[in-house]
Design a protein around this nucleic acid. Structure first.
Length: 85
DNA sequence: GTTCTCACA
DNA sequence: TGTGAGAA
């Protein structure tokens, strides 16, 4: 048994993301609307965020705080997607 | 507690 | 880009 959970284990509701990302449910949902994040969904249509999605939301917030817009963030996501580091 | 829609600044 | 109010 690995004891530790994978970073892709989506088991956090939007309420949890609010705390760790210090964002609002509206913003979190807003980012997903822009395609900045892609959380899983429960049978109840509830969003389930993983350590990866949560960490990403923080990155998104940072970019926006830097003066970037959805277009700019999407560019960053793409840049991070083309390489691991 | 969570999600969706419409309208506004 | 981010938020308020109403309904399920």
């Amino acid at each position: 048994m690995k004891g530790n959970i994978p970073r892709s284990a989506a088991c956090f509701p939007i309420s949890v993301v609010q705390e760790i990302t210090s964002l609002s449910a509206r913003q979190i949902r807003y980012y997903e609307e822009q395609g900045l994040i892609d959380p899983e969904r429960n049978q109840g249509n509830q969003r389930l965020f993983s350590m990866n999605d949560i960490d990403r939301c923080q990155e998104i917030k940072e970019l926006i705080d830097q003066g970037l817009n959805i277009a700019g963030i999407k560019a960053v996501l793409s840049a991070r997607n083309k390489n691991s580091g």
